[in-house]
Design a binder for these strands. Structure first.
Ligand SMILES: [Zn+2]
Ligand SMILES: [Zn+2]
Ligand SMILES: [Zn+2]
Ligand SMILES: [Zn+2]
Lengths: 127, 127
DNA sequence: TACATAATGTTATTTTATAACAATAAACTT
DNA sequence: AAGTTTATTGTTATAAAATAACATTATGTA
């Protein structure tokens, strides 16, 4: 369990508290009072947090969420459902999907490292 | 089979000829001789082509590829393998994955519309 | 033709991300 | 502890990706 540096902790905290995916510049404007003043400081922290598996990037939204699973300690795989109505993003417990997809990768001859899966549609509430 | 407008055809042709995913501004610089001069013209064509299912966006790369499957005429689902060594991107024939994932979406109570799946690792050649 | 709709052209701006380099801080080595 | 290396931080400037806003032209259709 790697310990976070100052900036990493600040950035992680704000993502972790948020109920929705946060964009890099939203994060920036929310941490300026804490002394983080420029984009590279945010992006560096984000990069490291992703490496550690503490957060994930939602590629289709250029936004970042805290990992909601205990089992993706290293960011090998992530799967999200994204509601197109309320914009809610939920990380899917991905152990089953992971198994299925890594066996699939085998089949097509690929040496699998990680994947990113984004589901779009309507969530329980909105459908 | 929808017919393409002038700009859509120009943009599609260059993506379709390419052996690798193309970025919007790469496309732009390659079609300026054909009279497409500004980013919005490219992005509009890209948007429509995506709607039609003729191309897909590789979200993790901000790049665009022609659809390699005959069966995703409407861009409901797309799955790609991306080699981290040679950067090769291949669209996976996704009928099986589609079936699996849409049943999974059912299970978590989501009204599924589409998904985007990106596999990272090493391709046959590079592994 | 007259009207509506879709596509295009154009300029400017916004949003997202990184390059490059200087300054500190933390971690090792002797 | 002093010296050396490595990681992290700070800062300025810039690059890359995408869109807003509005004017113009083409296309369909009543
Ligand atoms: Zn996770
Ligand atoms: Zn919803
Ligand atoms: Zn396709
Ligand atoms: Zn390869």
């Amino acid at each position: 369990m790697q310990t976070l540096t100052r900036n990493q902790q600040i950035v992680f905290d704000i993502i972790n508290k948020s109920s929705e995916p946060l964009k890099a510049y939203t994060i920036l404007s929310n941490v300026q009072k804490k002394g983080i003043k420029a984009p590279p400081q945010v992006y560096r922290a984000l990069d490291k947090l992703i490496e550690m598996g503490k957060i994930h990037k939602i590629e289709s939204k250029n936004a970042f969420v805290a990992c909601q699973n205990s089992n993706c300690k290293v960011s090998k795989a992530a799967a999200f459902s994204i509601c197109e109505s309320c914009e809610e993003v939920t990380e899917i417990d991905n152990s089953k999907i992971s198994k299925y997809l890594s066996s699939f990768a085998d089949k097509i001859g690929m040496k699998y490292k990680k994947y990113n899966l984004e589901f779009f549609g309507l969530c329980k509430k909105c459908k």
